[in-house]
Design a binder for these strands. Sequence first.
DNA 1: GTGGTCTAGACCACA
DNA 2: GTGGTCTAGACCACA
Lengths: 121, 121, 121, 121
Amino acid sequence: MIQLDYKSGIPIYDQLINGIIRLKMLGALKGGDALPSVRTLASSLGINPNTVQKAYAILEERGVIYSVSGKGSFVSDDNESDKAVRDIALTEFKKAVLDAKHKGLKIEELIKCVEEMEEDL
Amino acid sequence: MIQLDYKSGIPIYDQLINGIIRLKMLGALKGGDALPSVRTLASSLGINPNTVQKAYAILEERGVIYSVSGKGSFVSDDNESDKAVRDIALTEFKKAVLDAKHKGLKIEELIKCVEEMEEDL
Amino acid sequence: MIQLDYKSGIPIYDQLINGIIRLKMLGALKGGDALPSVRTLASSLGINPNTVQKAYAILEERGVIYSVSGKGSFVSDDNESDKAVRDIALTEFKKAVLDAKHKGLKIEELIKCVEEMEEDL
Amino acid sequence: MIQLDYKSGIPIYDQLINGIIRLKMLGALKGGDALPSVRTLASSLGINPNTVQKAYAILEERGVIYSVSGKGSFVSDDNESDKAVRDIALTEFKKAVLDAKHKGLKIEELIKCVEEMEEDL
DNA sequence: GTGGTCTAGACCACA
DNA sequence: GTGGTCTAGACCACA
């Protein structure tokens, strides 16, 4: 399911968020699908339920999933959610572009870099 | 000189690092130039000397500057340093590209996004 | 009958309460009419009998319906009940108005908003 | 400062959020003002730092405040934040209007109710 | 000192 | 059982 990397420095809840979004992108999770409960996912990953709770809360706020008290958490099928996710991703990407520029990389280099990565994947 | 943005969420020491690298890229700082002392820069920016110290230490580690005990810190003229900085920047940028892809953005969108940012700046 | 929206965040029992009150307002339920039994309604909506039970209990407490042991639940024809329901609803609405004011919305904006909603519905 | 009501059923972190927004509306908090630190506010209110942390995190995400690790939390002067707050408030208000309608109140009654509240305040 | 993350564990409403 | 809130307390990066 979701691979956690404790050495990455990326907060666990962020890795969960990214992991669930990725699973949705890949089609492994579809609209209406039930997610593992907060406690179940926590124990299967060996982390604290609060951490899962935090990830789910953020995903819900972004419209990627929705939670029903007493029933569980489910994947939204709302296309709006995709848009929200993409907006956030694009903003973060722009930040990275600026950062690269600030460190002396030129726009053409960045574009070339992106194009080369296309072939790899 | 260097503009700090406290709201950006980027650590101050990182902003310092980027700022000094940028000044070197722009030619405002050249090989052999003396940098302001840790205390001077700290007080002129209104920040903690520890923060400047950390930035200088990282820059030295990357070969962008070098320190002479009792004399101060100076800009390296070694072209190697530029390469190292650029390598690090490129690696981080690639990570950002991957992340954006994982969140559903397509390569063409990213390229378009980069091109549009070129016009703005 | 009653449409449940699991994504709304409104507790199911509250949706049931609102639904039954609405059916009464609309005239679909009149004084003396028998309500479906707790189990019947629960199974026809695919929800837990406890949830229906809770809704019925609250409706009875407010005088909207009444229960006869061994016979079932019935709609009150008492006009008093309507008044009680309306009083509660009005109190909650006033709370919402205050909250909106506290967050900087002006009375005129609220009125305009309500008027616009009239057209939509 | 901020009055907490433990009996209200409203989560403490929500009361904090509303309280800070209200203080900003009233002009008691202006752009750039430092907020009490997470720990300070927690101990002065007799609650857990985590709860304050949660409130601050949500306020930051909404653009009402911004936090700088190691420095503290500050009130945004960005007018955008007001817009975000107002949007959220308006959405909540609309929900309340719908709820009132569902319970049998008529639009005209709601408008009259709002108008009467104008005189009181 | 300051914000941010995380664990451990309790308690509540809801289903 | 399930999500949500809260406390208590530890630890980290940053300033």
